[in-house]
Nucleic acid binder design. Structure first.
Lengths: 185, 185
DNA sequence: CCAATATACATCGGGTTCGAGGTATAAGCT
DNA sequence: AGCTTATACCTCGAACCCGATGTATATTGG
């Protein structure tokens, strides 16, 4: 998740670590702050992997900084991760939101739509949080208001996202144009 | 998060590891499946901490199992974690949902309301996911439909939760009785 | 009767993350 | 001149998590 965010932000423009830190913190830090001890080692191993280059530059404001540039390999890695996200990237909200933040860097609308459809499929499968003797429990079955709330909120949030997903997929994949040589009607 | 779920499920009834696994998977596994290699070490260290006891019993269906019982210390630990959750438990959705699933085990409605109010305060503080030159960007400012969606969804979900939070806090903490006799009609 | 499946538990290695601490530089305040 | 704050980077140990792998038992299906 962190690595994806780093690749994504650097795709737009070169940044130094500190700047990257503030951007990552804005994107995900509200929910899950990123520690220096996580960010800098990540930068280091990504540089070692050849995905980015580090350049010493004098600090504009204070201490000298190390500007980070995405390499061609880095851009390919970003695209690979966007095109073929793991199941966790689809199901975990934090990861999914990160992915969504950079999905525009896939240049094929069809590929973008394919990723959205995976999320759609995930949200459409019925699930329950609690089971009693193997039977899923509905919100109304709980005396507990907190578990009721849990299910209510989960339902409301997924409805909102489903609506957006369906609309966006449609706009990315307009119906097959009714051309003169239709492969399929 | 995992430890909280274990404490919470065992608060209701003794369970063996495998049963625990299915329950934890139902609660959080949809989003973030829990691996055996995570669960069993967690059980082990929680037993070492004195929060639970393990008992060998013959398997009802197949292999012998180790029944897990929450100790008094374990119950106190659960209550401590519910009463004084860390910031991450409040901000991270996965953790927060887990907490919510077991919040009924705090027996004081006031304490429950206090926890809900922390989440409320967190959701009420204005935040932005993206900044341009230090200025937060609104959804309309993006050409990018994915970032637009990101903000739209985040907004919708937090509205749903806010409504629930406010209603539930009110029901847990009825308005101060205006009379000289605080009994309340 | 054999294979597959579900139950049930466990360990190990590799990798990631966090928290705490440390080192500098420059600006602004007192 | 000294203090604080913001910028900017880095390391280390402890903890944690995941995936792979391994062991064993009972039921079900072919």
């Amino acid at each position: 998740m962190l690595e994806l965010a780093i690749l994504g932000f650097l795709r737009d423009q070169p940044l130094h670590g500190y700047d990257l830190r503030t951007r990552v913190a804005a994107l995900m830090g509200h929910v899950r702050p990123v520690a220096d001890g996580t960010l800098y080692p990540a930068i280091k191993r990504m540089a070692a992997a050849g995905w980015l280059l580090r350049n010493h530059e004098p600090g504009l404001v204070a201490a000298p900084r190390r500007m980070l540039y995405l390499t061609v390999e880095g851009r390919q890695e970003l695209e690979r991760r966007l095109r073929e996200p793991g199941e966790l990237d689809i199901s975990d909200e934090n990861r999914w939101f990160t992915l969504l933040a950079f999905l525009r860097h896939l240049d094929e609308p069809k590929e973008q739509a394919a990723v959205l459809r995976r999320r759609l499929a995930f949200l459409e499968e019925p699930t329950s949080f609690f089971y009693e003797d193997g039977r899923p429990m509905a919100a109304e079955e709980f005396a507990d208001p907190f578990r009721q709330g849990l299910l209510t909120i989960a339902h409301a949030t997924s409805e909102a996202e489903l609506a957006w997903l369906r609309a966006t997929i449609d706009s990315l994949e307009p119906l097959e144009p009714p051309g003169p040589h239709p492969e399929r009607p």
